[in-house]
């Protein structure tokens, strides 16, 4: 049971103020995520924290630059929300447990397994999927290099691999082959395209720098 009194301002070892101070220089996360329309309780006001669900609740997702508000049960994963109501089926579910990385998307530019994160947990962060990688008709250099090197066979794991390799190049414009392997070390490709994926990513890195 929620107890409103317990969220108050009693003595404590580490105060909230300490946390705010210690957060300087780190990424601050906006607590008031858009989905909690009624989450207006002020800090220390004694108002209970808002509970959403288990019925469908409004969840606003910013995906590929577009904001959409969906009604989702809190248990819906990001992968399910993308593939279902948002119709973005380029993101694939392979194992549904974070073990194959086929479902890789970016949250604020960082790769995550979208099967292992709840849609309601995204908050104001931006999601980028394989559908949002190309600039209009112009493929991302990693996508173009994947075609050039035949870094795909059945293509099911490909969107996830492309997202990982493209993310790597954001941080490491000129990676070594071993860094590419490390970046894709969570991915499974049963067709065995790893050698071509590594070669393609190195080519894409050169293309971006040219």
């Amino acid at each position: 049971m929620l107890n409103p009194d317990d969220s108050g301002s009693r003595e404590r070892g580490i105060s909230r103020r300490t946390f705010l101070r210690s957060a300087v220089g780190t990424t601050m996360v906006d607590a008031a995520s858009g989905f909690l329309d009624d989450a207006k309780a002020a800090e220390g006001s004694g108002v209970p924290v808002a509970v959403a669900g288990p019925e469908p609740v409004p969840v606003t997702l910013k995906v590929n630059g577009v904001e959409r508000t969906l009604r989702l049960e809190p248990r819906v994963t990001l992968a399910e929300a993308l593939r279902g109501p948002l119709g973005l089926t380029g993101t694939k579910i392979g194992c549904n447990r974070g073990a194959c990385s086929a479902c890789t998307v970016w949250i604020d530019g960082v790769t995550v397994c979208s099967c292992m994160i709840l849609a309601i947990d995204i908050g104001a962060r931006s999601v980028t999927t394989i559908e949002g990688l190309a600039q209009g008709e112009t493929l991302h250099p990693v996508q173009a290099a994947f075609i050039e090197h035949d870094a795909l066979q059945c293509g099911y794991c490909t969107p996830g691999l492309v997202m990982s390799c493209a993310a790597l190049l954001r941080n490491r414009p000129d990676p070594a082959a071993e860094e590419v392997r490390a970046a894709i070390s969570g991915h499974y490709c049963r067709c065995g395209t790893y050698p071509h994926v590594v070669a393609a990513t190195l080519t894409a890195a050169k293309a971006r720098q040219a």
Binding site: D6, S7, G8, R10, R12, I14, R16, F19, A31, A32, S33, L36, A39, A41, E43, G44, V49, A50, V51, A52, G53, P54, V57, E73, P74, R75, L118, I120
Partner: peptide, 14 residues
């Protein structure tokens, strides 16, 4: 997966 409600705590106390 069962259904559950979601609580977005804003403080440790919450």
């Amino acid at each position: 997966m069962n259904r559950f409600a979601w609580v977005n705590a804003r403080t440790i106390e919450e």
